[in-house]
């Protein structure tokens, strides 16, 4: 699936521009622990989290994660968006809970 398809299916808010919207995604990881993401998330997948601070971008960039979905209607910090723009990481948002967002993405990948 493409990130652009994920955005339209989940009706996500795009907080940053999407340079990699056509990139193909084969994996999704859900976690709010940054060391867990570093250790276990797949490279080039989508990361679902409720964390909103600037270190989310550093971890995503380190793991070559092109897009982060922030759930529960939380808003990313301003410095998070600035760094995300610099690093080319897309920050997306939804009012859904992690379970709902992950469920839809699971079906998109495996349906």
């Amino acid at each position: 699936m493409k990130i652009s398809e994920v955005i339209s299916k989940l009706q996500l808010t795009a907080y940053t521009r999407m340079p990699g919207g056509e990139e193909l995604i084969n994996n999704v990881y859900v976690s709010d622990l940054l060391s867990d993401v570093m250790a276990n998330a797949h490279e080039k997948g989508i990361w679902i989290t409720l964390q909103t601070h600037i270190n989310v971008v550093a971890v995503a960039a380190m793991k070559n994660i092109p897009a982060v979905i922030i759930v529960n209607g939380r808003k990313p910090d301003d410095d998070t968006l600035k760094k995300a723009t610099d690093e080319g990481v897309a920050i997306l948002g939804t009012d859904m809970h992690a379970f709902e967002a992950a469920g839809i993405l699971y079906n998109m990948l495996n349906g």
């Binding site: 709010d32 622990l33 940054l34 060391s35 867990d36 570093m38 250790a39 964390q51 601070h53 270190n55």
Partner: peptide, 15 residues
């Protein structure tokens, strides 16, 4: 609360 300090850092480094 930031998602750090989960006791995974040193084990991750060793691994």
């Amino acid at each position: 609360e930031m998602g750090w300090g989960a006791g995974m850092g040193l084990p991750n480094m060793k691994k």
